[in-house]
Write a protein that binds this DNA or RNA. Structure first.
Length: 690
DNA sequence: AGCACGCCGACT
DNA sequence: GTCGGCGTGCTC
């Protein structure tokens, strides 16, 4: 058989490669776009995807032949390819990198034979097996459901904890599946291990037609679930941000739960936003009637702004909470307290009173370890990381100093390394110290049954290991722990029945932080944390307890707290948006970052300076502001210096045009003297933090 | 990114 | 005498 057709194939060429379009291969017949193939690339063979158009002039003198065609597998459809093509263009990555990263990693290791074996073992298509009966909806929920069904724009489902968003998702999914016997639904969640309840509820309602897609699965499970989605057997796919890439040939509804959550933004590789791509994906499928629902109690300001402008349709679910009260806000002015106060007297008294009555409490402190740094009182030495521009955190129980950025660990020195002083003191507070402090402060206290108060801690340190997280949460749930101390991970989605007091020990970092998105995140965290209190209305009522949210702060007059006291997200958002508009910040401007890494900071900065110079005269340049290159806030991590250059424009099109035209110049810089010593560089479109 | 080829230091 | 350090270059 003589090769007679030229076929465009997308292969995994990384962003740094200058091969960013499809490559041309030969085959004995044309192949439909979306077909998976194995092709030779250099000295290896790789997985590739047949793409839509063969380039007019292949860039290579001699073309090579496709090795293997995976014909048993249906091609990836046009809508999937459109999503990948959009993301590659928008986030300035190569088509191949995005397309291949969107497939389950295990697929890349298969050959045609192994694939055939696997497909033979896939189960027969399963419809949604009716299990648990859906509960009756409230009037508000019914209205929300109807609005979703008739929506022609993305829907923002704005509703607090306890307003019944999940039931709306479930019934919207049920109606979508009922309307079209082949329809598929995609549900995105921030972190699957923190929301196992949602998966459980979907499985209880829809049975085996629900599959999960997230990084906690084994490679084989992930592949099986991906194939089930691709073959149309899975009717509902529930997963984390990577699930936005799932091949779903009959996708008709996308739900993005907790849409404001920063974990939807990928921070390495292609820096995509799964929430934004979900909106794009639904838009591509608008003609087929696909809807997208973004749900949150504290939407991202970008999303809120889009709703204000009418680009998204806002649907509000009023809080019901089964008659329970919204927690009252109690502020402690830390300026009136001694430095480094952990529990101010009024908070301590409130805590003791609650525990003595048999209620539970949740204490939030966003720093793990015992103290964020140890210092010498004589010479001023501080425990800096040898590889990062950060302090080593003191972990008392481990007797170690640990870097939370590069993983460096060392024993705690007996004496100051510079002056020999043996009196080294921990500075600042972490969850480990808070736990110790709370245990001491409550040692004398007795619960109504006469037992001692039991204190538990939940952070990345105690949650390590299989099931550790679930065990602690279950212990709180069963009432075996009275106080739970932890980082923000305790605020997410858990249902603690008897918690009536939630306290943020010192969240001020977010108010001083140079990160201008910090207030938005803090508001979301505190509102979410407050939602943990008073969940069990019957218990709260029987106790005669008004649930409380305590915040210790040295800025009690910050407008954030006034809005929080009123439980007023719209008010908070209006105030923040006004500030953003005045300062010309997103969502009133569009941003991108060029980041560079090198062994020496000067090298990274100089490269960015050269990069800025090449941007002159490019399309879009007049409408884009390029700021001066600066070191990142955390300059050095694991021995690598990092710097960045911010680009900002009122016009997304101008920014996109500039970035696209800039990329070849940036690649070319690699071969110039300016490129020497630059380890890596990357463009981050719509960056979250910097 | 892989994965080669390609020239200079401490080991079986 | 080799094993191996990562510098530089290529992949239809």
């Amino acid at each position: 058989m003589r090769p007679s057709a030229q076929v465009a194939v997308v292969v995994p060429t990384p962003a740094h490669s200058e091969l960013h379009g499809p490559l041309t291969y030969t085959h004995d017949a044309p192949l439909p776009p979306g077909t998976l193939v194995r092709v030779p690339l250099g000295r290896r063979t790789v997985l590739g995807i047949v793409w839509d158009h063969a380039p007019a002039a292949p860039g290579a003198a001699t073309l090579r032949a496709i090795d293997e065609v995976w014909s048993p597998l249906p091609p990836l459809d046009a809508a999937w390819r459109a999503l990948v093509a959009f993301a590659a263009r928008y986030y300035q990555r190569s088509l191949g990198e995005v397309a291949l990263a969107a497939l389950p990693p295990a697929l890349r290791t298969l050959d045609a034979e192994a694939l055939a074996r696997r497909l033979a073992r896939t189960p027969s298509p399963s419809g949604p097996t009716a299990h648990e009966a859906p509960p009756a909806l409230t009037a508000d929920q019914t209205q929300a459901l109807q609005a979703i069904e008739s929506a022609t724009r993305p829907v923002l489902l704005f509703g607090a904890t306890g307003s019944g968003k999940t039931e709306v998702y479930l019934q919207a999914a049920a109606r979508t599946l009922a309307r079209d016997p082949l329809a598929q639904v995609l549900v995105l969640v921030p972190e699957i291990n923190l929301t196992p309840q949602l998966l459980a509820r979907f499985q209880a309602r829809f049975g085996a037609s629900v599959v999960a897609l997230h990084s906690g699965l084994t490679p084989a499970q992930r592949l099986r679930h991906w194939l089930a989605a691709h073959m149309g057997q899975a009717r509902i796919v529930l997963g984390t941000r990577t699930a936005v890439w799932a091949s779903l040939p009959r996708l008709r509804l996308i739900v993005v739960d907790e849409e404001h959550d920063p974990s939807y933004k990928s921070q390495e590789g292609a820096r995509y936003s799964a929430r934004d791509l979900a909106v794009v994906r639904a838009h591509h499928l608008a003609a087929a009637g696909c809807r997208v629902v973004l749900g949150s109690a504290t939407p991202a300001l970008e999303t809120w702004h889009a709703a204000e402008q009418g680009r998204y349709q806002r649907i509000e679910l009023p809080v019901r909470m089964g008659g329970a009260h919204w927690p009252a806000l109690r502020l402690v002015d830390l300026r009136q307290q001694p430095r480094d106060t952990l529990l101010a007297p009024p908070l301590r008294a409130a805590l003791q009173a609650r525990l003595a009555r048999g209620e539970q409490a949740l204490l939030l402190l966003n720093r793990r370890g015992y103290a964020p740094v140890i210092a010498c009182g004589d010479c001023g030495w501080k425990s800096g990381c040898p590889h990062c521009s950060a302090y080593l955190v003191y972990h008392k129980r481990e007797r170690a100093l640990r870097c939370h950025h590069c993983g460096h660990a060392q024993p705690v020195p007996r004496a100051c390394p510079t002056c020999g002083n043996v009196d080294l003191a921990p500075l600042g507070r972490g969850t480990e110290q808070l736990e110790e402090h709370v245990v001491q402060a409550l040692a004398e206290l007795r619960r109504p049954d006469g037992g001692p108060v039991r204190v538990g801690r939940l952070d990345a340190d105690t949650a390590r290991g299989v099931g550790a997280l679930e065990q602690t949460l279950a212990a709180v749930h069963r009432g075996e722990l009275d106080v739970l101390v932890g980082t923000q991970m305790v605020a997410k989605g858990h249902d603690f029945r008897r918690i009536t007091l939630v306290a943020a020990i010192n969240p001020d970092g977010a108010l001083y932080a140079s990160d201008w998105r910090a207030p938005e995140r803090l508001f979301a965290l505190l509102l979410q944390a407050a939602g943990r209190a008073g969940r069990d209305a019957a218990f709260t009522a029987a106790q005669g307890a008004q649930p409380e949210l305590w915040v210790q702060t040295s800025q009690p007059d910050h407008p954030l707290f006034a809005a929080l006291a009123r439980h007023d997200y719209p008010g908070f958002a209006a105030q923040q948006l006004q500030e953003r508009r005045a300062a010309g910040m997103p969502p009133f401007a569009h941003q991108a970052l060029l980041r560079a890494e090198a062994r020496q900071l000067e090298v990274a900065l100089a490269w960015l300076q050269h990069a800025a110079a090449c941007a002159d005269d490019l399309p879009g340049r007049p409408q884009v502001t390029l700021y001066a290159p600066v070191p990142m806030t955390l300059t050095r991590v694991a021995g690598v210096e990092r710097a960045q250059l911010l680009l900002e424009s009122g016009s997304r099109a101008a920014l996109q045009a500039l970035l696209a035209a800039w990329l070849p110049h940036l690649h070319a810089l690699r071969r110039t003297p300016a490129g020497r010593g630059v380890l890596r560089w990357a463009i981050d479109v719509d960056p979250l933090g910097y």
